[in-house]
Design a protein around this nucleic acid. Structure first.
Lengths: 362, 362
DNA sequence: CTGAAAGCGCTAACAC
DNA sequence: GTGTTAGCGCTTTCAG
């Protein structure tokens, strides 16, 4: 049933064609085949045509794995994300993948669900897979020696969205502190004095009024921005106005509920991320509190729905697209030029919409 | 400055340790080192300890690339997504990545932005990188021979969300037709007779009333469901009620606008995906049309914001998490058992909320 | 301009 | 139990 002649070399359901098959069919040496397929060295035009034809005939696909092994580079980047599903990180993923491709790199993605152990494993696996560099949205704050360059096989790394001060790694973050300050200032400018804060942070069970240890830098900075802006305005912060929650559903709802149930409940709430904004909306809706009227809200992250719902939500825009792009450029820079591009902190800007009531006119 | 003795073998900023280094430091053969590091064969407990110690000392990380080359498997899956950023695909990504990891696979992700050329390149690159299998959200309808198994190097593939009938590949989709039928039936049950349809489809410039050729299967089926449900109810479809748009912003808005401007404008709109729902909300907001009152809406995809905004949006829920999970299982099945798991169509269910007005009581 | 041969890091027969 | 050896698919000196 086999076909005769050279056709016997044609692709079957068996092993894919290798460069040897191409060389054989083209009746040249493996080296020559490699030269034309890899597009280097010098080959007679005629020979080149023959080899190309053979390759096409066989449906030859270069084995980049083998090539990588020799070259020591995989043209692959590792992206470790703390939480796929958070709008901001989904966007980061898209931008990282797209910009990496523009540089000829593919991206291996891992999700850690904010778990340190998963993060450690993800990094290890990517190192084993010989990624040329890493972009990491880390959830670790302690036990982070696995991110120490000494344990990174000499592979460059860029932290995205969150820094890890002790390691001195290059990072691309947003100006979280300033973002929170601007948000609080905006509330104050609109006559609010009782301003609450609801924080999503993975490292807590349920909800609590007590600020947990080991916050990631971005959240830490937002909280600090909140407190310092309040202090700067001479406004006291009632502990009842601040809550930390470990999930975006039930605990988040009860966290928001606790704040609203306070004797001296705030008129305004700053939500630490997009999911927390949704939680506030949810609770407000359940209680019949009109956002932008009975309750004011500013969130972080300009999710697609924020501008479209009624009322639209005033947010501190996290410039995640630019951050992701810069992270890739920084990483590629480190890879190709072995030059540490240092760290960048990109400004955040307040996007004014309809969710903050003006108490001065009331 | 070099340290003396064996310490000279310790990791430096130079090349990462190989199995040879480990073997040498442990004073055993490469094979033995490989046995303990790869955890196979039999090694004396004592020897194993020594090797392990040497590996730890050197910070040895196995080179999975080299291992892959020998084994012919990379434990890597390729995920080609038509449009990262669409909530439904972001979710798919998360689930694919997480379930793949549960099986010991990593995921290489590519984004095609619904461009055929990008899709073709992405597949080629992934094949070159020797992924063990592919999950593809394809935007192609024509020119799809690159997805023909004959051109896939024998690598299994599962189509997600969209089928490609002519190729007979295994796929995991939602029951799009039925979903649309249910949505229309729901409108009708609530007394609506003038029901519009606004469709997002990459293969059109701007907006048009004319159904474009080459629709992807999911959209095709939704449209067909719409028309057949209308027909089944004996309801005429005014061509002014149906629009197709190629982007989710300006054209989408004008598409919705066109429909609402029709002389005999519909009271209800079916939006073909989450982004189109947002477009409808946007236009309705701009025109002061209250959703669930002056205009009724049912969308596809149960995005996180859909249940939380006011009014909450009735949607046809695309069971994307389950679809993604099944796709991974199907693919892993094909990889390990070489057994084609066939195709699956998962039911969609209508999630009733507040965006459909009951015209019977009016 | 082309071929022979070595070797990237690892595993797996096959010996001993 | 352990070492020797061959070789996965590819690139790259080094000869010719």
């Amino acid at each position: 049933m086999k076909q005769s002649g050279n056709d016997a070399l044609l692709p079957t359901l068996e092993a894919p064609a290798t460069i040897n098959d191409v060389a054989q069919l083209a009746a040249v040496s493996r080296a020559t085949a490699s030269r034309v397929l890899g597009d280097y060295g010098t080959v007679k035009a005629e020979t080149r045509t023959i080899v190309l034809a053979a390759a096409a005939r066989l449906g030859y696909v270069p084995n980049v794995i083998a090539r990588s092994m020799r070259a020591g580079k995989t043209l692959t980047l590792g992206l470790v994300i703390a939480e796929i599903g958070l709008s901001v990180f989904d966007t980061a993923m898209r931008v990282v993948i797209d910009s990496a491709r523009a540089y000829g790199y593919q991206v291996l993605v891992s999700n850690t669900n904010e778990e340190l152990q998963a993060e450690r494993t993800a990094i290890r696996v990517m190192l084993e897979k010989q990624v040329d560099g890493l972009i990491v949205v880390s959830s670790s704050v302690t036990d982070l020696d696995f991110l120490n360059p000494r344990n990174l096989q000499g592979r460059p790394i860029v932290l995205l969205d969150r820094t890890l001060a002790p390691l001195g790694l290059s990072s691309v973050t947003g100006a979280n502190r300033q973002g929170a300050v601007d948000a609080v200032a905006h509330f104050i400018a609109n006559g609010h004095t009782k301003i609450g804060l609801v924080v999503f942070t993975a490292n807590v069970e349920g909800e609590t009024a007590h600020q947990p240890l080991g916050l990631i830098s971005s959240i830490h900075d937002r909280i600090e921005g909140y407190y310092s802006a309040m202090a700067a305005a001479g406004l006291p912060v009632n502990p009842d106005w601040v809550r930390f929650t470990g999930d975006a559903d039930v605990s988040a709802y009860s966290a928001v509920g606790s704040i609203l149930d306070a004797e001296d409940a705030p008129t305004a709430l700053l939500a630490s991320n997009g999911n927390m904004s949704l939680a506030v909306l949810k609770v407000a809706k359940a209680r019949g509190l009109l956002i932008g009227r009975a309750l004011s809200l500013v969130g972080f992250d300009d999710a697609p729905w924020a501008s479209i719902i009624t009322p639209s939500i005033t947010v501190v825009n996290v410039p995640i697209e630019e951050m992701a792009r810069v992270a890739v450029e920084n990483l590629i820079g480190q890879i190709s030029a072995a030059t540490d591009a240092g760290s960048a902190e990109l400004p955040m800007n307040l996007v004014l919409r309809e969710s903050v009531a003006d108490l001065r006119t009331a």
